[in-house]
Computed example of a mutant assay.
Amino acid sequence: MAGHQHTREARGAHQLPAATAGPRYPWQSTAKGDVVCYYGNRGDPKPIVLTPGTYGLSNALLETPWRKLCFGKQLFLEVVEQSQALPKDALVAQLLDVLNNEEAQLPDPAIEDQGQEYIQPILSKYAAVCVRCPDYGTRTNTIILVDANGQVTFTERSMLDKDPSRWETNTHEFMLQS
């Protein structure tokens, strides 16, 4: 999923997919020897090498089975499925829509257990892909597109002055160097 301060399987634990015979999408290939790792300030003290696939990250460890994370991955994969038919601007817009989805994904025992000290109406705000609460929540969305030719489009949407009605979007494009 694109970089996101917060973030498909609803109900139950989500397991990482086993490696398959080949990548489902061309961008999942590691034929060039590229390696992607995950490392955080919690969990395993060593970087984890990721196999080709789609992963979700929220304000917890990679692939924490929160319903909002699984729902966000589902929305992301739906956009990816149609991405070849979309102009770049439409693709970025749809990905930003995914990152700004405020639909609460409840009940979610994992979030409820973590937030026992909060009252239920506030907890429902934390259970969405995009969190909008006073003094806490999603403040930046980042979309990074890399095409087969190494053209990178980096789009970042940031909240201005802690005002959820005011946003600024910046896009930078460049070529990867080999």
Results as ranks from 00 to 15, higher is better:
residue 152 V to W: 02
residue 158 S to C: 05
residue 33 G to S: 01
residue 24 R to S: 13
residue 71 F to E: 03
residue 34 D to W: 07
residue 26 P to G: 14
residue 14 H to C: 00
residue 156 E to R: 10
residue 163 D to F: 04
residue 129 V to K: 07
residue 95 L to A: 04
residue 9 E to L: 14
residue 64 T to Q: 11
residue 72 G to Y: 00
residue 2 A to R: 11
residue 9 E to T: 12
residue 51 T to N: 15
residue 109 P to M: 12
residue 77 L to M: 13
residue 24 R to G: 11
residue 124 S to M: 12
residue 96 L to H: 14
residue 16 L to M: 08
residue 104 A to E: 06
residue 64 T to Y: 09
residue 107 P to Y: 12
residue 176 L to W: 05
residue 126 Y to C: 07
residue 135 D to E: 04
residue 48 I to R: 11
residue 70 C to K: 10
residue 3 G to M: 13
residue 66 W to L: 00
residue 178 S to T: 06
residue 64 T to V: 09
residue 50 L to N: 08
residue 4 H to S: 13
residue 161 D to M: 06
residue 163 D to Q: 08
residue 125 K to G: 01
residue 132 R to P: 01
residue 98 V to G: 07
residue 178 S to I: 02
residue 21 A to I: 07
residue 131 V to Y: 01
residue 171 T to R: 08
residue 172 H to E: 10
residue 163 D to M: 06
residue 97 D to S: 11
residue 109 P to Q: 15
residue 126 Y to R: 09
residue 127 A to Q: 14
residue 168 E to M: 04
residue 176 L to C: 05
residue 3 G to V: 14
residue 73 K to R: 14
residue 70 C to I: 05
residue 105 Q to T: 15
residue 51 T to K: 13
residue 154 F to G: 01
residue 84 Q to Y: 02
residue 29 S to R: 08
residue 40 G to K: 02
residue 133 C to H: 10
residue 62 L to H: 13
residue 116 Q to G: 04
residue 97 D to W: 03
residue 114 Q to G: 03
residue 133 C to F: 10
residue 133 C to R: 15
residue 61 L to K: 13
residue 76 F to V: 03
residue 174 F to T: 05
residue 95 L to T: 02
residue 43 G to A: 02
residue 127 A to N: 12
residue 170 N to Y: 10
residue 145 L to F: 06
residue 77 L to D: 12
residue 56 G to Y: 02
residue 166 R to D: 00
residue 22 G to V: 12
residue 27 W to Y: 15
residue 79 V to N: 06
residue 29 S to T: 07
residue 70 C to F: 08
residue 74 Q to N: 06
residue 56 G to F: 03
residue 16 L to K: 10
residue 49 V to L: 09
residue 54 T to D: 15
residue 28 Q to I: 01
residue 115 G to H: 10
residue 54 T to N: 14
residue 1 M to Y: 01
residue 128 A to L: 00
residue 156 E to W: 05
residue 105 Q to G: 11
residue 59 N to E: 11
residue 140 T to F: 04
residue 156 E to A: 09
residue 33 G to E: 00
residue 57 L to Y: 07
residue 161 D to Y: 06
residue 4 H to T: 08
residue 81 E to K: 15
residue 70 C to T: 10
residue 76 F to G: 04
residue 94 Q to R: 13
residue 27 W to G: 07
residue 5 Q to K: 12
residue 13 A to P: 09
residue 40 G to V: 02
residue 95 L to C: 04
residue 13 A to F: 15
residue 58 S to G: 13
residue 92 V to M: 02
residue 126 Y to I: 07
residue 121 P to A: 08
residue 22 G to Y: 09
residue 97 D to L: 06
residue 57 L to M: 09
residue 74 Q to F: 03
residue 166 R to T: 02
residue 50 L to T: 07
residue 173 E to Q: 10
residue 101 N to G: 05
residue 17 P to A: 11
residue 20 T to I: 01
residue 46 K to L: 15
residue 32 K to M: 01
residue 18 A to T: 07
residue 47 P to C: 04
residue 135 D to G: 04
residue 97 D to E: 08
residue 34 D to P: 01
residue 176 L to E: 04
residue 108 D to H: 09
residue 19 A to F: 08
residue 128 A to S: 05
residue 57 L to N: 10
residue 12 G to Y: 02
residue 37 C to H: 15
residue 4 H to D: 06
residue 65 P to L: 05
residue 133 C to K: 14
residue 72 G to H: 00
residue 176 L to D: 04
residue 30 T to D: 15
residue 150 G to R: 15
residue 79 V to T: 09
